[in-house]
Amino acid sequence: MSGVQSQFRAALLDPERSVPEGLVGADGQPTEKRFAVYRNNVTVALTEALRSAFPVLEKLLGDENFASLARLYARAHPPRTPMMMHYGVDMPEFLAAFQPLAHIGYLPDVAHLELAMRRAYHAGDVAPFDAERLSQITPDRLMASTLRLAPAVQLVPSQWPLFDIWRYNMQAGADKPRAIAQPVLVARRLFDPAPFPLTTAQAAWVAATQDGNTLAGAQDAAASIDPDFDLTPLLTLLLQQGCIADITTPKD
């Protein structure tokens, strides 16, 4: 695309470029500093959007490092839609390929978790699910049933102690991260998303359920990782945190 706006856009995100012709001040003269207002507005807007999307990353990296990272990210990945609430979706991949931070291997997973928290915040609402409904279904039919999880429920797989890392950075006095694999479930009971640590077997159960498997299928997926898998603690968590939207029982 040619035209004024192409030149304007090119100079906007690249401070090395000269100011497009025809942009003048009150005296009719070209003006570097006046154009810089737009450059600065865009840089600040995108940096602030990333800052509010990734508070834990900012804490881990420090203000200045995060600001540098945000500028590089914004140049490589300008927003693709006016929905700024989801800006930053490419951050995990960007971090995974970013050599200067390659020594902090868990950063991409932290970015995944923060994006999941944001998606959960804006996800659709569901009516409260009555746990009594589960006890009214015979065990055989229950295992052939399918649970539908609430749109706010997000699963973030990780080989890192992801929940511990999140908590250590967000809660004063929290324990240091342990050396364990810690997938995270994000749930939103009313309006505020919260992360919960899962075992890898529990994560496999949630993933299988999100894929539309029956309770029996999800049980198999979890048992393939942990033969002694017991659903009870996970089901309690899901019910308490409003993660279950509905259950579909098989037709007779």
């Binding site: 695309m1 004024v4 706006q5 192409s6 304007f8 856009r9 906007l12 995100l13 025809g22 737009y38 507005n41 865009v42 807007a45 995108l46 959007a49 300008p78 927003p79 693709r80 839609t81 006016p82 700024m84």
Partner: peptide
């Protein structure tokens, strides 16, 4: 504010 597939998150001027 939109150019090509990019949203520039500012209110930019036109002639």
């Amino acid at each position: 504010s939109t150019h090509g597939a990019e949203f520039l998150d500012d209110l930019l001027p036109l002639p």
